[in-house]
Design a binder for these strands. Structure first.
Lengths: 246, 246
DNA sequence: GAGTGGTCTAGACCACCCG
DNA sequence: GGGTGGTCTAGACCACTCG
C-alpha cells in the first residue's frame, strides 16, 4: 500500500481503488482490520482527501469496506458469493464452461398482451422470440423464451443469437443494461416443458419471468424460463441501497 | 425546482436530492427529459457543483436519472417495481396489511453442519430457531425456519419475535443489515410442509435458503423457507453495480 | 479533547459529444 | 467551438465516537 506510481489515462481514484482492492482480496489486509484514516491515505497516495474518499466510496459500495462515523474504515469479510449480481439475460449463471445453449426457435411474432405490457409496447407489435434450451454438463435444464421488441433491434436476426448473451447484442446496439426484475414461482411441468428437459409431467419446475431494462428505463427483454426443479438452483445476491432515505 | 429553502440539521445534498426526487416521481419531470446542467442546477440551489453532483449521484444510483458524458443528465423511466430490493428477513414482501405471521416455535438448538457453515460458527454451536408460518389474506403460504447465532443475540428470546421483523432486532443490537444471498429451488412438498400450508404432499413448493449479512460481513441469519407454489411469487430486483470494474 | 468520517466550497482542467 | 459531465484540488467546518 506504499509504493504507487499513477498511470496516465486512467483516473487516479480508480487506480487507487484497484490497488486497495488487490490488497484486500489478496489478503494483505485482514477482515475487520482498520485502514489508515482518510487523511493519512490521501497523503500516502499524494491526492486530495476528496479523491481518496472517491476511491474508498467504491470499495464500500462493493462491500469490501465499511465505514463508521467517528471511528474509522474497516475491511469487511470477503463477499459471500456473486454479489452485485449482474442480472444476466440467460439463466443467470451460464457463464462457466459446463453449460451449453441450443437455439430452438428464432422468429418474429406479435406480442401477447402480457409481453406487450412488460415491454411497454402496443399489444400485437412485432417482437423477436428467441427460444433456447440450456444444458449443464450435457443435461437439459432450462427452456427459455426471450422476447425482444423488434423495433429496438431490427438487425438482431442477423446476429449470432444463442451463441453470445443477448446482452452483448444489446450493448452493441447502444443499450446499457442496468436493471432487471425477476418473478419466481414453483410450478408443475407442462407436457411441453417436461418433454424438453426430460422430466415427468407435473414434476416441480422453477418458473421465472424476467424483465430487463436499459439504463434509460427502456425495457429491452422479457423472458419466461422453466427450469428442472431437481437440478437447478437460482442464486441471487441482494444488497441494501446505499444511503437510501438517509 | 426553483424555490428552495434549506433546512438545518439535514445535509443540503440530501434535501436537494429529495426535492429532485419529488419532482421526478411527482411527474413534473417527464421520462427522457433532460435536466439543466450541473452548473446551472448548482447555481439554482446555491451550492457548489460538487455538492450538486452528490445529489444527482444518489438519484442515478436509485435509477431515477442517468448521465451521458458530454451530453447531459436525463430522467429515466419510473422504477419498474420494488428495486433496491431490500433483502428482508421474512418472506420478502410481508410488509403490507394483508399478511400475518404466527410464531410456531422459538428455541435454542445446536447448529446442524449446514447451518453452522452458513453462519460461520462451529458446528453444534447454539443457534436460535425461529419457526414461523406466514399468511396472506388469512391463507397460510410460507413456513420459515430462521437460524440466528445465539452468541450474537443472547437477548433475542426476550424480544417480541414474530411480531417485528428480525431485522429490526438486529439493528437494535447494532448490526446493520447489508447483504443477503438467496438460493431458490422448486421442490415437492414434504408431508410436514404440505400439512402447514395446506396442500397435497408432492405439490410444488418454492424453496428458499437465505443467508443475511451485516455490513461488516458477519452472517446474522440463515433461513429455510417453503412457500406454496400456486399462491406465492417471489419478486427480485437486480441491479448492475455502479462503475464496477471501470 | 483528539481523531475519525461527513459535508461543503470555489475554483481548475480534462474527455466527450454535437453542430 | 461550446457545452456537457468526469476528475481533482486544498482547504474548511461539522458530527460522531472514544478514552
Amino acid at each position: 500500500m506504499v509504493e504507487f506510481v499513477p498511470a496516465r489515462g486512467i483516473p487516479i481514484y480508480i487506480q487507487i481503488r484497484d490497488a486497495l482492492r488487490a490488497e484486500i482480496t489478496g489478503g494483505n489486509l485482514r477482515r475487520g482490520q482498520q485502514l489508515p484514516s482518510e487523511n493519512e491515505l490521501a497523503a500516502r497516495f499524494h491526492v486530495s482527501r476528496m479523491t481518496m474518499r472517491e476511491s474508498i466510496e467504491g470499495l464500500v459500495n462493493e462491500g469490501l469496506l465499511y465505514r463508521r462515523h467517528g471511528v474509522g474504515t474497516f475491511v469487511a469479510l470477503p463477499r459471500p458469493q456473486r454479489e452485485h449480481a449482474k442480472p444476466t439475460s440467460l439463466s443467470d449463471e451460464d457463464d462457466n464452461e459446463h453449460t451449453q445453449v441450443k437455439l430452438l426457435e428464432l422468429k418474429v411474432i406479435p406480442a401477447t398482451p402480457k409481453v406487450a405490457q412488460a415491454l411497454d409496447i402496443p399489444a400485437g407489435s412485432h417482437v423477436i422470440l428467441v427460444k433456447t434450451l440450456h444444458y449443464a454438463d450435457g443435461v437439459p435444464i432450462t427452456v427459455q423464451n426471450a422476447h425482444i421488441p423488434y423495433k429496438l433491434f431490427p438487425g438482431l436476426l442477423n446476429e449470432n443469437v444463442g451463441v453470445q448473451h443477448l446482452w452483448t447484442l444489446f450493448e452493441k446496439a447502444g443499450y446499457r443494461v442496468r436493471r432487471a426484475v425477476q418473478r419466481l414461482e414453483a410450478r408443475e411441468a407442462s407436457k411441453q416443458v417436461a418433454h424438453w428437459v426430460n422430466i415427468q409431467e407435473g414434476a416441480p419446475v422453477l418458473f421465472k419471468e424476467c424483465t430487463v431494462y436499459a439504463d434509460n428505463g427502456t425495457p429491452v427483454e422479457f423472458t419466461y424460463c422453466y427450469s428442472r426443479g431437481d437440478l437447478y438452483t437460482l442464486t441471487v445476491g441482494l444488497e441494501r441501497g446505499r444511503r437510501v432515505g438517509q
